[in-house]
């Protein structure tokens, strides 16, 4: 047992190196002086981060991405909360089928979702802009929101709701004053994860973006210019740090849902 455990440990650490190798290159080469992405390193420099400050098309793309990410994470969280509340609280006909259908974008190849949406928008003669991307992203993010909200609603004690109704609150009051505060950390986690996923999403945005380029579509266009590589690496480093912060926050809130609900039950 201990021998096989030793081999497993060696495997686990080498696998971890493989998993980290590409991402570690981002910070290394974004601070490297040379314009060529290759070893040996030539020296430390902030110049690639500086050039990011003077690129107007990048700033426009960032603005579009923020509009898309904020709108679609809010819309998806509303839809996800409704779907999750309906399916965790009530039992009814057609529940499983419709839920599976709403969750389908989670596994469908994105190119199929993107192309089919584009076909409809073109047939209807709708101009592509940030709104078409927002709708596409909302469709994509709703399943993630449902999964997060499911764990928040499943941790909810139904007797709290019944107590509130017995004490004279109506349904709206019960939802607003009892349920909402308890699932709020879940809602925040869903917003943060949705925001991060939307900020990173490329395929749907690539098809539906029209002239309102989002950040990943901008990055894709930069890949063609070898001279701009270090700048793109610097941008990638910033994005990685932003994602790390946002997802750590969402993990913190997601854990708080289960903890706060458990502590109420213990009292």
């Amino acid at each position: 047992m201990s021998n096989s455990g030793k081999y497993l440990k060696i495997f686990a650490f080498s696998y971890l190196v493989f998993l980290y190798a590409p991402s570690l290159l981002l910070p290394i080469f974004s601070f490297n002086k040379s314009q060529v992405i290759a070893f040996p390193l030539t020296g430390f420099s902030f110049q690639w981060f500086e050039t990011l400050l003077y690129q107007d098309s990048l700033h426009q793309a960032l603005k579009n991405s923020l509009i898309v990410a904020i709108s679609s994470c809010i819309l998806a969280t509303i839809l996800g909360t409704l779907a999750s509340r309906a399916t965790t609280r009530y039992d009814f006909k057609g529940k499983q089928v419709s839920l599976t259908f709403i969750l389908a974008p989670l596994i469908l190849p994105e190119i199929i979702v993107g192309v089919s949406l584009l076909i409809v928008l073109i047939q209807l003669g709708i101009t592509l802009n940030v709104w078409s991307v927002i709708l596409g992203h909302t469709l994509l993010l709703t399943p993630f929101s449902i999964i997060i909200m499911n764990s928040a609603f499943n941790n909810l004690d139904i007797s709290l709701e019944e107590a509130s109704m017995d004490l004279g609150e109506n349904q709206f009051g019960t939802f607003y004053r009892v349920i909402l505060p308890l699932v709020l950390p879940g809602i925040i986690a869903s917003l943060l994860i949705g925001f991060t996923l939307s900020l990173d999403e490329f395929i749907i945005a690539f098809f539906l973006t029209g002239t309102d380029t989002t950040l990943p579509v901008y990055i894709w266009s930069q890949f063609r210019f070898p001279k701009k590589l270090p700048t793109t690496m610097a941008l990638g480093t910033i994005l990685l740090i932003v994602s790390l912060i946002l997802l750590s926050l969402s993990e913190y809130f997601r854990r708080r849902t289960s903890r706060s609900n458990n502590s109420i039950l213990e009292e």
Binding site: Y20, P216, W220, L239, S243
Partner: peptide, 9 residues
């Protein structure tokens, strides 16, 4: 953690 870098990058 490494998968918090965007898929594209």
């Amino acid at each position: 953690i490494p998968f918090w870098t965007s898929y594209l990058i």
